[in-house]
Simulated assay, not measured.
Amino acid sequence: MHSESSPTDNWSPPVARAAADVPAVFAERFNSGRPEAVAGMYEEGAVFVAPDGRVADSPEGIARANAEFLGLGLPITVRPRHVCPAGDTALLIVDWEIEGTGPDGRPLHLQGTATDVARRGADGVWRYVIDRPVG
Rank of each mutant, 00 (worst) to 15 (best):
M1G: 06
H2E: 10
S3E: 14
S6E: 08
P7T: 10
T8G: 06
D9P: 03
N10S: 14
W11R: 08
S12A: 11
V15F: 08
A16D: 01
A16H: 05
F26M: 10
A27F: 08
A27L: 14
E28P: 00
E28C: 00
E28S: 05
R29F: 12
F30R: 01
S32W: 12
S32K: 11
E36V: 00
A37H: 11
V38E: 08
G40N: 06
M41E: 15
M41P: 02
Y42F: 15
E43F: 06
E43W: 07
E44G: 10
E44T: 14
G45Q: 03
A46W: 13
V49S: 07
V49L: 04
V49M: 02
P51A: 09
P51D: 02
P51M: 04
D52N: 15
V55I: 15
V55S: 07
A56H: 15
D57T: 06
S58H: 01
S58A: 08
P59N: 10
P59T: 07
P59S: 04
P59I: 08
E60G: 11
G61F: 07
G61T: 01
G61P: 06
G61H: 06
I62N: 04
I62F: 11
I62L: 07
A63P: 00
R64T: 09
L70D: 10
G71Y: 15
L72S: 05
L74R: 10
L74I: 11
I76D: 07
T77M: 03
V78C: 09
P80Q: 08
V83A: 10
P85Q: 08
P85R: 03
P85M: 09
G87L: 12
D88G: 02
D88M: 00
A90P: 03
A90K: 05
L92A: 09
D95N: 15
D95R: 15
G100E: 10
T101Q: 11
D104L: 05
D104T: 09
P107F: 06
H109T: 02
L110G: 01
Q111G: 06
T113S: 13
A114Q: 04
T115Q: 12
D116V: 01
D116G: 00
V117Y: 05
A118G: 03
R119K: 11
R120L: 02
R120C: 14
R120Y: 04
G121E: 08
A122W: 00
D123A: 12
G124K: 07
G124H: 05
V125N: 04
W126T: 06
R127Y: 08
Y128L: 00
V129G: 02
V129F: 01
I130P: 05
D131P: 01
R132P: 01
P133T: 01
P133Y: 06
V134T: 12
